[in-house]
């Protein structure tokens, strides 16, 4: 059903620009105008939970880019053969596979970080950004464009996470990734920013800034 609605004629990728100009639009959508975190407010559980350090945020962002690209690619490749009734189960199976692969590699080569992130890497399986992109985009679009969408949304998520992580770590500890930026001599680290409420404040401010910069919502024009 989904593949009948396929709007684009993107099969001729490679001749001109990426996917006949839709690539850039898709990229911009995911990173900016339809940012999964700041505009759609999706997947904020992990965004609130792991962002007390910039490093954690970056690794989490990388995880999401990897999983989103992988799941979008395979959901898109399989979109014509997947039975409609079990498509969501199939999507979750694909997503879970990528998440566990990432988690295993983290455990093998980046042990300390894996311990810091604890269960949150595994919880990417339930991240609604990834499921949402598979359902809303990859099921209806060709593989290459779906990869672009995966990258775009992954980066959109990672950038917001990095911003939150940067400010929370900076204000909460006075240092970022080991570099002291706010000297303890005159700056009293604000514990609140490390704690859960700090995540909500930071998230709220970033959502507000994103929306202010983006201008009035498209819905207003409709």
């Amino acid at each position: 059903m989904a593949n009948k609605q396929q709007p684009s004629n993107c099969s001729s990728c490679g001749s001109g620009g990426m996917c006949q100009g839709r690539g850039l639009v898709t990229l911009k959508d995911g990173v900016w105008s339809n940012n999964p975190l700041a505009i759609q407010i999706l997947g904020i559980c992990s965004a609130l939970a792991v962002t007390n350090r910039l490093e954690n945020s970056l690794v989490m962002g990388a995880a999401l880019v990897f999983v989103c690209v992988g799941s979008n690619l395979f959901v898109s490749l399989l979109r014509k053969v997947t039975p409609h009734r079990i498509r969501m189960i199939a999507e979750v199976a694909i997503i879970a596979t990528f998440v566990i692969i990432f988690d295993q590699f983290l455990k093998a080569f980046y042990w300390d970080m894996s311990k810091q992130l604890g269960p949150y890497v595994g919880l990417i399986i339930t991240n609604c950004i990834i499921m949402g992109r598979a359902e809303a985009f990859a099921l209806r679009n060709p593989p290459l464009l779906s990869i672009v969408d995966g990258v775009a949304n992954g980066i959109g998520y990672a950038v917001v996470l990095a911003l939150i992580g940067f400010f929370r770590e900076l204000l909460g500890t006075g240092a970022v990734m080991g570099y002291v930026l706010l000297d303890g001599a005159w700056y009293e680290p604000n514990q609140l920013m490390i704690l859960a409420p700090g995540a909500f404040f930071a998230m709220g401010i970033i959502v507000a800034v994103f929306n202010a910069l983006k201008g009035p919502d498209v819905e207003g024009k409709r």
Binding site: V81, P83, A90, I94, Q104, K107
Partner: peptide, 27 residues
């Protein structure tokens, strides 16, 4: 549908086993 689910499940399981085997010694 059953066949599809079985094949997809099998492939995913295979991938995970391979990953687990590969990363096992490092872990």
């Amino acid at each position: 549908t059953l066949c599809y689910a079985a094949v997809l499940g099998g492939v995913c399981a295979l991938l995970l086993t391979a990953t687990s085997n590969f990363t096992g010694p490092y872990k």
